[in-house]
Design a protein around this nucleic acid. Sequence first.
DNA 1: CTACGCCCTCAAGTAACTTGAGGTTCAAGT
DNA 2: ACTTGAACCTCAAGTTACTTGAGGGCGTAG
Lengths: 145, 145
Amino acid sequence: MPALARLTIGALAERTGSSVPTVRYYEEIGLLPKAQRGPGGQRLYDESDLKRLIFVRRCRDFDLPIGKIRELVSLIDNPAQDCSKARDVAELQLTYVRRKLAELRALEEGLAHYATACNERCAGGPARDCVILEDLSDGDNCCRR
Amino acid sequence: MPALARLTIGALAERTGSSVPTVRYYEEIGLLPKAQRGPGGQRLYDESDLKRLIFVRRCRDFDLPIGKIRELVSLIDNPAQDCSKARDVAELQLTYVRRKLAELRALEEGLAHYATACNERCAGGPARDCVILEDLSDGDNCCRR
DNA sequence: CTACGCCCTCAAGTAACTTGAGGTTCAAGT
DNA sequence: ACTTGAACCTCAAGTTACTTGAGGGCGTAG
């Protein structure tokens, strides 16, 4: 299974949807192991690096901070540990994501309201009379929050 | 209506849900005008500062970047301008928020799936067999994305 | 042989704040 | 009058997760 033995950093980046500097950055902060080097000094990667980077990127897609990913990576590197830690991380992140979701929904409603109101009631008029601008700086009488 | 003539920075921060350093920071980058100073050098604020800061904070609640807020603030400061710019900013932000919402929903689903799967199939076992860790580093056979 | 693309390192920049050090000033209590 | 202690001040540096830029090397296709 050493089908894929030598990947350049560019190829690795492309396969994982990362940028080249990001890959170097992950190495620098220790999320990826120090890469092997070719004769000219270029980094060379193999399957296991690819797998690791896919893991890291996926975690980032889930908005996990680097610190949490570090914990998970160390879990992978010490496979005898209890995996309930991974579940805890996932659950904690789930809570965070749900809170964010609620916030964003409120936000969407508010913005949609303003866009419509401005279109209907004041579009093109002077900024002084804009419902958005007025409403947003009013202490009490704002529709949202 | 000069009911509220002298607010300290701490009082202003509290009323707007900002931190004190944040208020100073906004002044530094020009989102708030340079504050008046009391005899000992402390900043003093009035109604209009309060109004402005509420506006800025509300925009930040809507996740607007500082640059956009700067545009809106300058709209407020030049009230003769056409307000359709405010609507454009709101609409652009709406698009952004809706994209974010979709991403987060997918994210929530994925995380929930992992948490449940780990609870049912491997909780407490060694990390080597964890469905989360395995699944996330697999190139093809991942359920998500 | 030279032009091009990919690679390298190291330093600094980005957003939006937060944190820390080191030092005044203000309001209250004794 | 004096002394706390809270709240204020400035300036510098740290935070997160990268991106961007300067300055240079290697390899190969024309």
